[in-house]
Amino acid sequence: MSGQLTDAEQYWKANLRLILGSLVVWAFVSYGCGILFRPLLAGIPIGGTDLGFWFAQQGSIVTFIALIFFYAWRMNQLDKKFGLEE
C-alpha cells in the first residue's frame, strides 16, 4: 500500500474521531461534573440547587441532546465533504 488513505477510510476515520470526541464530552459532563467533581461544584448555586446536582440531574441530559444535534450537523458536513449527501 502506498500509505495513502482512500476516501472511504478517511470518511470513517473522521466519523470515528467525531464519535470518540462526543463520547468524551458526554462522559466528562455525566460522570465528571455529575459525580467526580460534584463536591467542587457544590458551592456554585444554580436554579435553587448547586451546580453539581444540576449536572447530575439536568446537565447531562441537556448535553446529550446538544451532542445529538452537533453530531448530526457535523455528519452532514462530512457527508458533503466526501460527496455522500442525500
Results as ranks from 00 to 15, higher is better:
Met1Tyr: 10
Met1Ser: 15
Met1Leu: 10
Ser2Arg: 12
Ser2Leu: 07
Ser2Gln: 09
Leu5Ser: 10
Thr6Phe: 01
Thr6Gly: 11
Thr6Lys: 06
Asp7Thr: 06
Asp7His: 08
Asp7Pro: 01
Asp7Phe: 06
Asp7Arg: 14
Ala8His: 10
Glu9Gln: 15
Gln10Lys: 15
Gln10Thr: 01
Tyr11Arg: 08
Tyr11Ala: 03
Trp12Asn: 09
Lys13Tyr: 07
Lys13Met: 14
Lys13Gln: 14
Ala14Ser: 15
Ala14Glu: 15
Asn15Met: 10
Asn15Lys: 13
Asn15Tyr: 15
Leu16Trp: 14
Arg17Gly: 12
Arg17Gln: 12
Arg17Pro: 00
Arg17Ala: 13
Leu18Asn: 07
Leu18Tyr: 06
Ile19His: 01
Leu20Tyr: 05
Leu20Gln: 11
Leu20Ile: 03
Gly21Lys: 02
Gly21Phe: 02
Gly21Val: 03
Val24Pro: 07
Val24His: 04
Val25Phe: 00
Val25Asp: 01
Trp26Tyr: 14
Ala27Gly: 01
Val29Glu: 00
Val29Asp: 00
Tyr31Ser: 05
Tyr31Asp: 02
Gly32Gln: 00
Gly32Tyr: 03
Gly32Glu: 01
Cys33Leu: 15
Gly34Cys: 00
Ile35Phe: 06
Leu36Met: 06
Phe37Val: 01
Phe37Glu: 02
Arg38His: 10
Pro39Lys: 03
Pro39Gly: 03
Pro39Ile: 06
Leu40His: 11
Leu40Ser: 07
Leu40Val: 06
Leu40Trp: 11
Leu41Trp: 06
Leu41Cys: 01
Ala42Gly: 02
Ile44Tyr: 12
Ile44His: 11
Ile44Cys: 05
Pro45Gly: 08
Pro45Cys: 05
Pro45Phe: 05
Ile46Cys: 02
Ile46Thr: 09
Ile46Trp: 10
Ile46Glu: 03
Gly47Trp: 15
Gly47Ser: 14
Gly47Gln: 12
Gly48Gln: 09
Gly48Cys: 09
Gly48Asp: 09
Gly48Arg: 09
Thr49Met: 13
Asp50Glu: 12
Asp50Thr: 04
Asp50Tyr: 05
Asp50Leu: 07
Leu51Tyr: 04
Leu51Ala: 14
Phe53Lys: 15
Phe55Thr: 01
Phe55Ala: 09
Ala56Arg: 12
Ala56Met: 08
Ala56Val: 00
Gln57Ile: 04
Gln57Leu: 03
Gln57Trp: 02
Gln58Trp: 11
Gln58Val: 11
Gly59Asn: 05
Gly59Ser: 00
Ser60Ala: 07
Ile61Val: 14
Val62Phe: 10
Val62Trp: 12
Thr63Asp: 01
Ala66Ile: 05
Ala66Thr: 04
Phe69Ile: 14
Phe69Met: 12
Phe70Leu: 13
Ala72Lys: 14
Ala72Pro: 00
Arg74Trp: 10
Arg74Ser: 13
Met75Asn: 14
Asn76Ala: 13
Asn76Phe: 08
Gln77Arg: 13
Gln77Asn: 07
Gln77Gly: 09
Gln77Met: 05
Leu78Tyr: 08
Leu78Phe: 10
Asp79Thr: 03
Phe82Glu: 05
Gly83His: 02
Gly83Cys: 04
Gly83Ala: 03
Glu85Val: 00
Glu85Met: 08
Glu85Ser: 13
Glu85Phe: 07
Glu85Thr: 05
Glu86Leu: 08
